[in-house]
Structures are given as C-alpha cells and as structure tokens.
C-alpha cells in the first residue's frame, strides 16, 4: 500500500513539476501555526485526532510564536492559509481588525486551558523566593531610590533584597514575539512596578511605558526569540542566570531546573488552577470559521481538543503539563464551538 502510494507520488511529482502554476491546490488536512507554548499540546491533540478518526488526516502543527501565527491566520481565506492559530494570549483588537480586512470574519475563539510561567534556575544554584517587585527592580531601566528615579544600580540580587541570594543578576526572558512575554510584562513587571509608590502615581499608558522600560547594560536582560530549549542552553552556559519558562517545560526537565516561589507560592498544576500562583495565563486557539465545511474535520478537531478525554484531568494533555479548564468553562467553550460564536462582532 505504502509502496503503491510512493510510486504514485513519484508520478505526481513528475506531473506536478510540469504544471507548476496550478493555483490553489485543495487540502484535506488541517493546518495549524502559532504559539510555541501551545505547540506541544496542539501536536499531541493532532496526533491523537489522526489516530482516533480513521476518516480524517492528522492536522499539521507549525510554530512561529503567537504573533507570527496571527499574521498567518489573518492572511486571508483559502487552502494556502492556515485554519487554526495557536495563541498563548487572547487575540488583540488590532489583530481582529486586520483579520476582518483580509476577509477572515468568522473567528471562533477556543480556550484550551492554562499555563503557569515560572522562574527557573539551575539545580546546583541557590533557591530564590521572588516577588514581582524584585524582578522589576532587577531589570527596570530606572528604579526609584530615596524618592528619586536613578539608573538601575543593582548588580546582584541581594542588593535588591537581603533575603535573595548573593548572585549576579541575569534574567533570560522571552522576546516580544512570544505570547509569554506579554504575560510576563503584565503579571510580573507591571505588578511589581506598581508596588513602588513613585510608579503607582503614574497613570495608564505613561505608567505602562515607564514600567516596561528594561535596562540595557550588557548581560542583565537576555531576550530569547527562539524556543525554551534556547533559554535552557543559556542557563547551562551561564550558571547564575534565571530563565523564564512555561510550567510544562519545567516539568519535563525536573532534573536540571528548580523554580523560584512567587509571593511564597510554588507553581504546580494545583496552585495554578486554584489561582494562588499569580503568574498564569489562559491558552487559546482560533478557528477560521470560513474554513469549516471546506477543510474536513476542522470542527471535529476543535471539539476533540477541548473534550474532557483529551484535555481534562488525567488526559494526555494534562500529562504533558496543560492545566485543564474547569467543567463549567469546558461546557461553555464547547457550546461556543457548537454555536460558532465568533469574536469581535
């Protein structure tokens, strides 16, 4: 069977090369791209989907970060555009607009679960008990000292707070193409920044801008545009570095990494579900409504992904580190899919 397929394939290859200009070739499997945090989960769901439904092909899952995925998603309608965009944050109004402008009007939002963001360091180094204000003070460009804003003078963690280890400040954070960065900015930097009364005085965008200015002296803040493995490699090269990871990545590398507590809470699947651990975010994927009924299995895949058997407690995705939705949330998401509820309208 496989052999017949391959020889047929060769014939097709030869034929296809001759007719290069054939436009828009039909597609019979789902194409996904976007957030690298969602990628492992989406890949597992895709594989299980292909294994469960003999009549559908397994979806193909690409990466590219939340922003990159959105850009591809909003390119338009047709077989050469993707059907689903993975996102580790909700779609922004600007992105919805650009989608509408390209004719993508029926965007169905599907929340799949949650992920914690952890501050991990090497196992052989000291343990950290961090608070958002420590993190902000470590990497902000200007910090208030004795009521005046001065250029960040801190070189070691214990200069910020006596309780922290005497260790050089090196924070490896995701670059802005990652959805994780946005959550880091919002839930760590801005929260930490607001605890300083000089910054709390500021309002709205001015505050946001001032809080998110990072120091630029070499080596204290390292932005990583690639995957978490790149962050891990940084930690292996620089013993003092602290990396920002997704909780699920940490759980696959327990032997090398340890995580800092945030406000005294250790990140686990339980503390993130309960909301005790402060730095977590929902994960999403977005379905292109126009492709439902054209690309076979699209709506079935969405339902399969959020079903309790695939992403609930003790499911394959749970084992892979996804923090599941509550039963109420799951029911709501499933009904949204069923009713084809679109965002931004």
């Amino acid at each position: 069977m496989r052999i017949i397929n391959s020889t047929l394939g060769l014939a097709v290859a030869a034929a296809a090369t001759l007719s290069v200009a054939t436009p828009s070739l039909a597609r019979d499997n789902i194409q996904i791209a976007g957030s690298s945090t969602v990628l492992p989960f989406a890949s597992i769901a895709a594989e299980e989907f292909g294994n469960t439904f003999p009549q559908f092909k397994a979806p193909v899952v690409g990466s590219g970060g939340t922003g990159g995925g959105m850009r591809q998603f909003c390119q338009g309608i047709g077989a050469s555009t993707i059907d689903i965009a993975n996102a580790s944050r909700a779609m922004k109004p600007a992105e919805i607009e650009s989608c509408h402008a390209a004719g993508v009007e029926k965007i169905i939002e599907v929340k799949i679960g949650y992920d914690g963001i952890v501050f991990a360091s090497r196992r052989d180094k000291a343990e950290f008990k961090l608070e958002p204000k420590h993190v902000w003070a470590a990497i902000a460009r200007q910090v208030p000292i004795d009521g005046k804003m001065v250029d960040n003078p801190y070189g070691r963690w214990n200069q910020i707070d006596k309780s922290l280890p005497n260790q050089q400040i090196t924070l490896v954070i995701p670059a802005s193409n990652h959805g994780t960065r946005e959550v880091f900015d919002e839930k760590v930097l801005i929260e930490g920044c607001k605890t300083f009364k000089e910054m709390a005085k500021l309002e709205g965008d001015a505050q946001k801008e001032a809080c998110l200015k990072l120091r630029q002296d070499s080596g204290t803040v390292v932005e990583i545009a690639g995957d978490y493995t790149e962050t891990l490699a940084r930690l292996q090269a620089q013993a003092d570095a602290i990396g920002v990871f997704g909780l699920s990545f940490y759980e696959s590398n327990l032997d090398r990494l340890q995580i800092a507590t945030i406000d005294g809470v250790t990140a686990t699947q339980e503390t993130v579900i309960s909301g005790e651990y402060p730095v977590s975010r929902p994960l999403f994927f977005y379905v292109k409504g126009e492709h439902i009924g054209v690309i076979p299995g699209l709506i079935e895949f969405a339902q399969f992904f959020v079903s309790d058997a695939v992403s609930g407690v003790d499911s394959p995705l749970f084992e892979a580190g996804l923090i599941p939705l509550s039963d109420d949330e799951r029911a709501k998401v499933l009904s949204n899919i069923k009713n084809r509820k679109v965002v931004g309208k």
Binding site: L8, A16, A33, L39, K57, A58, V61, G62
Partner: peptide, 17 residues
Amino acid sequence: IGMSAFVSTIPGGPLEQ
C-alpha cells in the same frame, strides 16, 4: 515555507505536508 511544522504522518506524495 512552513516545513518546520509537526507532521505525524508519513507523506504519500510531494503535495502532502
């Protein structure tokens, strides 16, 4: 050109991902 995607099947021809 998107060939870094995760594909869990063996392609049966040059048009399959």
